[in-house]
Design a protein around this nucleic acid. Structure first.
Length: 322
DNA sequence: CAGGTC
DNA sequence: GCTGG
């Protein structure tokens, strides 16, 4: 950690100049529900109501009060060194200006998508949604980085959230750049693709407790590096849902469910409905979807997605998140 | 058995 | 079939 250790920032009141806010009603965003729901595994409730995590290679703390979303961004530990190196325009060069941080946050939470109107439409079409929606307002889909999203969700197969979170933390610590320390706790960026393509990547991941997923992570990193590249992966944002899904499913460790998670949570495919065992049971028990088999076959997977798309419309994946 | 995949 | 809550 740096010689002048930074402290975690809880609330704007202690040092208002380090915080900014965006207008954002609770009906449009519930930070606690969104950041703890298993969409992203990199946010941590650092104190009651305050969420700290890594986004866009920066460490942030977020908080809501009333109709505002507050945020603060921490500087990098070697930021002064960087600034000294740039003798032309110091302070400015290494930092993000406020317009840029506002934009990053608005993009990540997709705040231009009006959630209240969508809730009304889903509630009108579905009585079961209406019952749940009252208890869970402000649940929206994050717009995550495609590389982070892909490799995170490869880790979710046949796994549980507490272990997934720990695995991803160790992945970032071992392969990602250290950004800063807060209260002596180091924060690391999610590693770029190039960090996962080394010959020893699989063995290192196994040592980190990835089990058989170690081969999937290193194998998918290689496949992308030798194929479409990080840029090509990101360009799937403008491709049709079916094509994005087909490309992703060709990667080792990526089946229909993981592909749909990546499509929905990072590639702008709002119609993608990831069907896990939980959703499968709900489709049968609560919605009475008639499916014969005992296991979630590819056929059953497709039918459940189609059922919810028919019920909720083109943003079915967003409704399912609620 | 866990937010499946080979 | 990796691993742990």
């Amino acid at each position: 950690c740096s010689p002048t250790p930074m402290k975690l920032r809880d609330a704007p009141s202690a040092c208002p100049s380090l915080w900014r806010c965006l207008p954002c009603p609770l009906a449009e965003l519930r930070l606690d529900l969104v950041l703890s729901s298993g969409q992203s595994f990199r946010w941590w409730e650092s104190s009651p109501g305050a969420w700290t995590g890594v986004l866009g290679d920066r460490v942030w703390t977020l908080r809501q009060d009333g109709d505002r979303l507050w945020y603060t961004v921490y500087g990098e530990e070697d930021e002064h060194k960087k600034e000294e190196e740039r003798d032309g325009c110091p302070a400015r060069a290494a930092k993000l200006d406020v317009a840029e941080t506002d934009r990053i946050l608005r993009d990540y939470f997709q705040l231009d998508v009006g959630l209240s109107a969508l809730y009304r439409a889903w509630a009108a079409a579905d009585p079961l949604f209406r019952k749940v929606a009252n208890d869970f307002p402000g649940v929206r889909v994050l717009r995550q980085d495609p590389v982070e999203c892909l490799f995170s969700f490869i880790c979710t197969s046949n796994n549980h959230i507490s272990r997934i979170t720990a695995m991803i933390e160790r992945l970032c610590q071992a392969f990602g750049r250290r950004l800063c320390c807060l209260d002596s706790r180091p924060f690391h960026a999610f590693p770029p693709l190039s960090a996962l393509t080394g010959a020893d990547a699989e063995a290192r991941l196994r040592a980190l407790g990835f089990g058989y997923r170690a081969k999937f992570v290193s194998g998918s990193a290689r496949a992308i590096a030798e194929g479409l590249g990080t840029e090509g992966l990101c360009q799937l944002r403008t491709a049709p849902y079916a094509e994005a899904r087909r490309v992703l499913c060709a990667l080792p460790g990526v089946g229909a469910k993981v592909a749909d998670c990546v499509c929905l949570l990072s590639l702008d495919k709002a119609e993608a409905v990831p069907v896990d065992t939980h959703v499968w049971h709900i489709a049968r028990q609560r919605y009475g979807v008639a499916l014969g088999g005992k296991s979630l076959t590819p056929r059953a997977y497709q039918e459940i997605g189609d059922f919810f798309r028919g019920l909720w419309g083109p943003r079915a994946g967003w409704a399912q998140a609620v």
